[in-house]
Design a protein around this nucleic acid. Sequence first.
RNA 1: GCAGUCGGACGGUUUGUCGCUGGCAUCCUUUCGGGGAUGAAAGAGGAAAGUCCGGGCAGCAUAGGGCAUCCCACUUGUUAACGGCAAGCAAUCCGCGAGGGUUGAGUAGCGGAGAAGAAAAUAACCGCCUCUCUUUUCUUUUGGAGAGUGAGGUAAGGGUGAGAAGGUGAGGCAAGAGCUCACCAGCCGUGUGGUGACAUACGGGCUGUUCGCCUUGGGAGCUGUAAGAUCAUGUAAACCGGCGUUAUGAGGGUAGCCCGCCCCAUGUCGGAGGGUAGAUCGCUAGAGCCAUACGGUGACGGGUGGCGUAGAUAAAUGACAGACACCUUCGCUCUUCGGAGCAAGGCACAGAACCCGGCUUAUAGGCCGGCUGCUUUC
Length: 140
Amino acid sequence: MYNLRFFTRYFMTATLCKAERQNKHSVIGKLFESGGKSISAFPLRVVYMPLAKDDEFPVSILVSVPKRLFKRAVKRNRVKRQVREAYRLNKDILLQALADQPHGMVLAFIWLDKELHSSEDIGRKMRNLLHRIAEKTLQL
RNA sequence: GCAGUCGGACGGUUUGUCGCUGGCAUCCUUUCGGGGAUGAAAGAGGAAAGUCCGGGCAGCAUAGGGCAUCCCACUUGUUAACGGCAAGCAAUCCGCGAGGGUUGAGUAGCGGAGAAGAAAAUAACCGCCUCUCUUUUCUUUUGGAGAGUGAGGUAAGGGUGAGAAGGUGAGGCAAGAGCUCACCAGCCGUGUGGUGACAUACGGGCUGUUCGCCUUGGGAGCUGUAAGAUCAUGUAAACCGGCGUUAUGAGGGUAGCCCGCCCCAUGUCGGAGGGUAGAUCGCUAGAGCCAUACGGUGACGGGUGGCGUAGAUAAAUGACAGACACCUUCGCUCUUCGGAGCAAGGCACAGAACCCGGCUUAUAGGCCGGCUGCUUUC
């Protein structure tokens, strides 16, 4: 498993371009209103939903930090960047699991805490979440 | 040197790994709409913030007049504009001082001003003075002194208050009073100086404070880039325009009201709207920035030369690791007592969202200049 991850990461550059960030209004509405399942690992909660597969980008994500938790935009931006970075560096966990599946997936990460966390901590929680989603996907 | 005050400018630098955004160049590919790869550059602020003023720009509305409503209010200037800014004026408060804070159209009329105080604007409670009467007492007598009652005069003194009938002093008086005089503060008139707010000289005895209504002068259409435009999709009885036609009465529009003005059922011809999701434009060359000398006390102005400098949209401008610089220390070591080295910790406020000019608020840390006070040396 470890070797495979290393291999993937070496040849697939860990990018995260605009097309991988979910921005379709209708998809987001559907995700939160009906189809989304959620699991959480404090301070992160993820809402996810299978979606028709796009060959180039099977997974799209969005990150949300409520204004209620951080009044100042500087801190909200910092958290969003940390979460995006954590996903970018670990996304091959999920991509490997979805490689043989007929569907893609959309994820929404929601921040839950009023405090800032270290990037190391967020990365650990992100790996936890992605592994759990990957397991559930394989069970489908 | 220390303390202070005013003004100005700054607010990290850098290496590595992995990324993000929009352009550019080269190449590849294409269903000619586009898509992809590589490369070298670029990519948050002094407040980007609060959204408090003022404009540009855009759309909609709009014959005209009056009233109401709202905003502004010492003067002169500055500007695209402002409630900003600059230089001034007057009053007042703080500071030894350099300086700083607050207030500022008018007062003819109407109304309010708790508690306190006799009284808050036709002032008499105590006090002071005069007179009548009664009474006590002293004296040889005329008369003197005290107490009380009543009539009157008095704004000098007391106490209350933010404010007590301009202030202080002298004359004057029974006692007093701008009653008279001198000086001072205000007001009015005249002259002089100043663009002006005002200042000043002379004359006049005209003189309570504060708030609101009110009065005067100036100004204000509404909505904000989610404005708005184009493309694609696509249709009805809705919308707009032309032509024809009915009625003179209600209704609608014209920012809230009034006057005034405009419109009108239905038919026919022509045009193309609305909703939903999306793409592109708007979207950055602008009252632009930097340098320089000139004019101006200054805000600022025009001149010359140079520069090309973010454009996201579930919202890029980063994440991680290190080095340097800077700051702090009940920490250690050294010291020529000025400091130096090591260690540990810290390194602010804060993220463009159409664009500008201001204001307000937040802000670690240091830098530069003018001036003031104290102190040391010469």
